[in-house]
């Protein structure tokens, strides 16, 4: 079945109904395995001791915070260039989830920083650029709420999302471009990971679990957004029937 076949929201909702239980089951299994490996298989770090266990949630949350924004950026292209009917639904649904992952990355990083760096927070490039990412998520969520018409809001948010995507390489390379307290990349490197396999495997399993969690939440939130647009369209239709001269019903693509 082609990508465009899922432009039909009803067909997409049927797909979600089938896929969601399987995805949720896989997510629970992955978290079970990941948490077991993080606490009972992975060794202590020779320098950081037990605090290295914070890494198993901090790093996946940080990856997901950026992946979520990347998905929003691709969805924004889908809105502006290809005019895919579910593209702005996807972008809008992803924003609060991305904000939650970014919040988790900042909080766990802060709680990891205090025992390791001696401080909860420094205004260095990595931490500040991730804070900017959180503010962008919150700004986009606000923009969607301030505009009544989801089509206009989707286009405005798409432009803002694409502008904000410039922050992604800044986050990624901030530790290379500037002197920061934050360590440089140790997994996604051109010359391969620099951390031991005993620590890397639990991290990768947790990353898979977080990714599955994102897709579960994203599909649930997209389903809600489609229902929200149906409610809006029906209310407009009801208003139009009650006051035919004053109300203007506009059908939404995600109806």
């Amino acid at each position: 079945m082609a990508f465009w076949d899922y432009a039909n929201p009803t067909r997409f909702l049927k797909l979600v109904q089938v896929v969601l239980p399987w995805l949720t089951g896989l997510c629970v299994l992955a978290f079970g395995a990941g948490l077991y490996m993080s606490f009972f298989v992975a060794p202590e770090d020779y320098q950081q001791g037990q605090t290295v266990r914070i890494m198993y949630i901090h790093v996946p949350a940080a990856w997901l915070s950026m992946m979520c924004y990347s998905i929003m950026a691709v969805s924004s292209l889908g809105t502006l260039v290809w005019k895919h009917p579910l593209a702005d639904v996807s972008a809008k649904a992803a924003a609060p989830i991305g904000a939650a992952f970014t919040f988790m990355a900042l909080v766990t990083g802060s709680l990891w920083g205090k025992p390791m760096w001696g401080t909860y927070w420094v205004w260095d490039a990595r931490l500040t650029s991730v804070l900017v990412l959180l503010i962008m998520y919150l700004g986009l969520m606000t923009l969607w709420r301030t505009m009544d018409d989801p089509i206009k809001a989707g286009k405005a948010a798409a432009v803002l999302t694409l502008v904000g995507a410039l922050n992604l390489p800044v986050i990624k390379f901030s530790v290379d471009w500037w002197n920061t307290l934050h360590q440089p990349a140790s997994v996604m490197r051109m010359d391969g990971p620099t951390i031991h396999l005993d620590i890397l495997w639990p991290l990768l399993v947790m990353a898979v679990a977080f990714t599955l969690l994102f897709f579960v939440l994203h599909l649930m939130a997209m389903r809600n957004e489609i229902l929200r647009r149906r409610v809006r369209t029906l209310r407009l239709r009801a208003a139009s029937a009650a006051h035919p001269r004053s109300a203007v019903a506009t059908a939404q693509p995600a109806e």
Binding site: Q50, I57, H58, A100, M104, W112, L217
Partner: peptide, 27 residues
């Protein structure tokens, strides 16, 4: 035994769990 920094580790996992639960409940 999570050592002397157990509070930081448990707070990290606890806050993540709480955030995810709030998100699921909200949806």
């Amino acid at each position: 035994d999570l050592g002397s920094h157990a509070g930081f580790i448990l707070a990290s996992y606890g806050l993540c769990l709480l955030t995810v639960l709030v998100l699921i409940a909200w949806i």
